[in-house]
Structures are given as C-alpha cells and as structure tokens.
C-alpha cells in the first residue's frame, strides 16, 4: 500500500517527504515505547505508527533505519522534528485519529503487522 493511500484512509496530512508518497509500505508497527521499536529486526518498508511525537521518536527511526512514520492523535510535529526527519530522508504523515482507530483502519485495508 502506498503512503498516499494510507494518508487518504486515515484522512491524514503529509508533514514531510511529500516527494516519496508513492513509496510502498509492507507492514506496520504501532508503539509509543521507543525501546520496543529499537528491538525490531525486519524493518524493510515498515511504517511506525506512534503517538509519541518528539525528537526521540525521530532519532529512534534514524537508528532503526525506519523511513516512514505516521503520527496519531493529532500530536504536533515541531519544526525541529521536521528538520531532523528531512535530514534523514523520512516521510511523516499525521492523523487526528487515535492509535486504535488508525490501526484498525489500516489492518482492515490489508496492511499487516510486522509480527
């Protein structure tokens, strides 16, 4: 599923990485705990779904080689976060929906969990 399709499904907006919205996503991991994100082994075409919107969630993606992030619950993505994400060529989208609702919509649409 493309980032663009995901964005439409969750009525989201693209925060950065607009030029890559046609990239394909294969699976999703949903977590607010960054130490759990750091345990992931297979991160190919993985999107992180999180309500933790701060510099450490971007850093965690950087260290884990995760390029795609979906911020839930309408949390603010600051300019500082955006700059760090752009330095790491990440795509960030954002939705007002809750974690559970977003997960349900994407799972129903056929996007599997990483495990």
């Amino acid at each position: 599923m493309t980032i663009e399709a995901i964005k439409d499904l969750v009525h989201g907006e693209v925060i950065c990485g607009e030029e890559r919205i046609h990239d394909e996503i294969n699976c999703v991991f949903a977590s607010d705990l960054m130490s759990d994100v750091l345990t992931l082994k297979d991160i190919d075409k993985l999107m992180l779904l999180t309500g933790l919107s701060n510099l450490q969630s971007i850093r965690t993606c950087e260290m884990s080689d995760i390029s795609y992030m979906l911020v839930v619950r309408g949390k603010e993505v600051t300019e500082e976060m955006k700059e760090l994400a752009e330095d790491n060529e990440m795509v960030i989208i954002k939705t007002e929906y809750s974690m559970y609702k977003t997960s349900g919509i994407l799972y129903n649409a056929g996007l599997p969990a990483v495990y």
Binding site: M34, S35, Q56
Partner: peptide
C-alpha cells in the same frame, strides 16, 4: 515521556 524507561535499555544493548 520521551519513549524510554521501560527497562529495555540494557537488555537491548546486550542484544
């Protein structure tokens, strides 16, 4: 609040 502090750090470092 920063997304850490769940007692996973040292085990993650070891792994």
């Amino acid at each position: 609040e920063m997304g850490f502090g769940a007692g996973m750090g040292l085990p993650n470092i070891k792994n």
